[in-house]
């Protein structure tokens, strides 16, 4: 489903060029559960941003669902993101002035869905992440775990094929973290491809396929 061929991503830092991704080859099939681990600066987040079409490679080719997306114009990238990819961030990135329901609705608002349909869909999703009673709460009225569950709801409301999670439990206590992981894994069991970037070895070990990164290269690719 996702295929990276000889992907490089260089950054200019002062006079130096940093190779955040250095000729990476990677193939990901639908429905996989993958963890990406490695020290800071090893290129994990860059890989995630690139897979999520937030960033472009300096060279190489990225095939998403059989389509070369490495040189698409901005608007088409946005469309691909909208249709295929759900993001989950360490710091949730909820919009503070919107209620849980409105936050989940946001992708549907952007895609121009009718108010009635999107409300219905957002409620379904919030039910699925166990926040039925919290739909009208604003983020500052929710616990960290609940916020991340709202964020998961928002990530899956467009029914994407891939969920990209960057340290999804990084800001949570272990119990809330476990709940979030449970939800993500159950979504994966229902068929969504889940890719988790994490420092947390315990979380990383749960994935069926574990990538290790170092200096912009994939140095380990272990399947259970």
């Amino acid at each position: 489903m996702m295929l990276l061929e000889q992907i490089c991503r260089d950054f200019q830092v002062g006079d130096q060029i940093v190779h955040a991704l250095d000729h990476v080859d990677l193939s990901i099939a639908a429905g996989e559960y993958i963890s990406v681990m490695g020290p800071s600066g090893s290129g994990k987040s860059t890989l995630l941003n690139l897979l999520g079409l937030l960033d472009r490679s300096t060279s190489g080719t990225y095939w998403l669902n059989g389509k070369d997306v490495s040189r698409l114009p901005d608007n088409e990238l946005a469309e691909q993101r909208q249709l295929n990819i759900g993001f989950i961030f360490q710091s949730f990135h909820l919009i503070p002035r919107l209620s849980a329901l409105e936050n989940v609705e946001l992708p549907l608002v952007l895609s121009g869905e009718t108010p009635k349909q999107r409300r219905e869909r957002a409620r379904e999703v919030l039910d699925a992440v166990g926040l039925t009673a919290r739909v009208d709460h604003r983020p500052d009225q929710l616990s960290g775990g609940e916020r991340q569950r709202v964020a998961i709801g928002r990530a899956i409301v467009m029914k994407p094929s891939v969920l990209l999670a960057d340290e999804p439990t990084g800001n949570l206590d272990s119990r809330s973290g476990q709940e979030v992981v449970d939800i993500l894994e159950s979504l994966n069991r229902d068929g969504i491809c889940l890719l988790v970037v994490t420092h947390d070895a315990e979380l990383g070990q749960r994935a069926r396929r574990r990538l290790a990164m170092h200096d912009g290269k994939i140095v380990g690719d272990v399947r259970q």
């Binding site: 937030l54 608007n75 946005a78 990135h93 946001l106 952007l110 895609s111 928002r154 467009m158």
Partner: peptide, 16 residues
């Protein structure tokens, strides 16, 4: 800024 980044991640186009 981060809200704008989020909107982009959710598939908002520049024009939007």
């Amino acid at each position: 800024t981060s809200e704008i980044g989020l909107l982009k991640a959710l598939g908002a186009r520049r024009s939007q």
